[in-house]
Design a binder for these strands. Structure first.
Length: 542
RNA sequence: GCCCUCGUAGCUCAGUCGGAUAGAGCGACCGCCUCCUAAGCGGUAGGCCACAGGUUCGAUUCCUGUCGAGGGCGCCA
């Protein structure tokens, strides 16, 4: 049983015993200051007002009652500050954490069933099939994939989807650009100017249909770079397929039936302003062509038929689009709260201290494939997931590729390498780790050891929170902290060798095993493969 | 003009549905390798949490406004 459940129950019971109605949720937190104990509750502060009591006095009574019959592991209870009740615990609660981590293992530790089987579709990337993915796409790609991993970890069946906008104006411009380059001409107005157009046009067979050939070429290129980042989609959903199936026409008919669409100036409009958009939007242009919006509405209906919750990952330049889709879903009777949209802010790619523009229209792009080739898949993923997607990111190619201290990637991977190094040394020395039940964990009392166990105790909560907030960077932050705690432990606490008796070695080997498990779980959520060995290259001082 | 996101150490960023003395890395300075990988560890310096109000026992956190930065406001996607 988790120590928090033990404490919360005890607090609740003690409040009832004092004749005070407990707050709806008794909050328990880990104080930043160790002087305030191992765990702390604000229950007295939270319930004093309703009970008409002085918070500090109520806290004192609560502490006294809890101290008279202390819950498991608790060695001291005291009131502090305005009425906090602080618990001091024996190290045994952390030894229980070690057992829990080992019992769960990589597969079940920090896994939850909170998702309760609710089906989720995560749609991300969904770049136009008109060229290679650029460095900016990488952020949405790594983010979306990691969010999908988080949802899976908390019990959701997850589908990863890529929506292919394989018809329409942009597609035609792309085909015309390819054809022009193949003929040795300049691309048409508004066409694609990138160098890749020149290269691909040169590779295109003379009898090929530029649109179909270019489509296949772009898709293959995008798929290849995504796979290099360990990202695989369950579904590549073609916009065209919905034209053929009649799904788009059916959606338009339903929008009309719901009085959510009307005709004006020869076009068909969506009454999106009835649902929060600042103006109505065109669904069918006056020339009879669909805009991007109408098939996309049909696509979202298709997704709702296959899932209970939809998650869309969009770039910052598409944020204005969110209100339209929400409006359409609302008009068609879906619950907009089941469609969650995350906007990823821009990536400012830098190289040689110079900002590099990302627009594919200008032709001055840095392809995602170049980024992966230059820094490696794992460093790229780690870097994209380093910070919240709510703020713009400066991605410095020089820095991420460099094997220097300023690069946080190696710090974490090095911790993993050290763990495996210990295992190798143990095997060489024929040190055998006894069964956990035969290991006396009470010898684990060093501050470095206890810090590690505290950190591990937080991973399940971190996973839950990161999933519900769709914030994989919280896992990144956790794993960086764990790595720091491990490096400190590694430095101060030898696992085996002179002066370390067999009992301590055994307990520390189990401790290292829990760190290995925690690291493996977290890195898997980030989609990173950590090598078991790392050796610095190019050093001069060896 | 309207909409979205951001503003925390010199730099890059964390900060747990409001909690006690705001953290990390890098950079700067000072230390630590006969010992499981020094891609490591320890210490010092560095803060009006952009600004002004409001909400309350308590605000970096929630609300409003101002200023600043980035992005978006096409019958493109």
């Amino acid at each position: 049983m988790d120590v928090r459940d033990i404490l919360i129950e005890a607090v609740r019971a003690a409040l009832v015993g004092l004749g005070v109605e407990p707050p709806g949720a008794v909050q328990l937190e880990r104080p930043a200051n160790p002087d305030h104990g191992d765990w702390s509750t604000n229950a007295a502060l939270a319930s004093a007002k309703a009970a008409g009591r002085n918070p500090r006095e109520l806290g004192a009574e609560l502490a006294a009652r809890l101290g008279a019959d202390p819950p498991a592991h608790v060695t001291g209870v005291e009131v502090a500050g305005p009425g906090f009740v602080n618990f001091r615990l024996a190290d045994t609660w952390l030894h229980d954490v070690l057992r829990d981590v080992v019992a769960g293992g990589e597969d079940r530790f920090a896994r939850h069933d909170a998702g309760a089987g609710e089906r989720v579709i995560v749609e991300f990337v969904s770049a136009n099939p008109t060229g290679p993915l650029h460095a900016g796409h990488g952020r949405g790609a790594c983010f979306g994939d990691s969010v999908a991993r988080l949802y899976e970890r908390i019990g959701h069946p997850v589908q990863r989807e890529f929506y292919i906008n394989d018809r329409g104006t942009q597609m035609q411009l792309y085909a015309d650009s390819l054809a022009a380059r193949a003929a040795g001409d300049e691309v048409p107005d508004g066409g694609y100017n990138g160098q890749y157009i020149v290269d691909w046009a040169a590779a295109m067979p003379g009898d090929a249909d530029p649109l179909e050939w270019g489509y296949a070429r772009a898709l293959a290129d995008q798929r290849e770079v995504l796979e290099s980042l360990h990202i695989r989609f369950d579904t590549w959903f073609s916009e065209r397929s919905m034209i053929g199936s009649g799904a788009v026409d059916a959606t338009l008919a339903d929008l009309r039936a719901a009085d959510a669409a009307y005709d004006e100036e020869g076009a068909v409009w969506l009454r999106s302003s009835d649902h929060g958009d600042d103006k109505d939007r065109v669904l069918v242009k006056s020339d009879g062509e669909f805009t991007y919006l109408l098939p996309d509405i049909a696509y979202h209906r298709d997704k709702f038929a296959r899932a209970d919750r939809l998650v869309n990952v969009l770039g910052a330049d598409h944020h204005g689009y969110v209100a339209r889709v929400h409006a359409a879903m609302h008009a068609l009777g879906y619950d907009p709260s089941e469609l969650e949209v995350t906007i990823t802010q821009l990536v400012n790619l830098q190289r040689d201290g110079q900002e590099v523009r990302l627009s594919k229209r200008t032709g001055d792009i840095v392809e995602l494939a170049e980024v992966v080739a230059e820094v490696g898949a794992d460093a790229a993923r780690f870097t994209y997931l380093l910070q919240s997607v709510d703020s713009a990111q400066a991605f410095d190619l020089e820095l991420v590729a460099s094997q220097v201290n300023e690069n946080p990637v190696f710090y974490v991977l090095y911790a993993n390498a050290r763990i495996h190094s210990i295992a190798r040394r143990a095997a060489e020395a024929a040190v055998v780790r006894p069964d956990l039940v035969d290991t006396d964990l009470s010898v684990l009392g060093h501050p470095r050891e206890l810090r590690l166990l505290r950190a591990l105790h937080e991973l399940p909560d971190t996973v839950l929170r990161a999933a519900s907030e769709r914030a994989p960077h919280q896992v990144t932050t956790w794993v960086r902290d764990l790595a720091a705690d491990f490096h400190g432990f590694y430095h101060d606490c030898r696992v085996m060798g002179d002066g370390v008796d067999a009992g301590l070695t055994a307990a520390r080997l189990w401790l290292v095993e829990t760190v290995r498990i925690g690291l493996a779980v977290a890195l898997d959520l980030l989609g990173i493969d950590a090598p078991e060995q790392m050796w610095r290259d190019g050093g001069e001082d060896d």
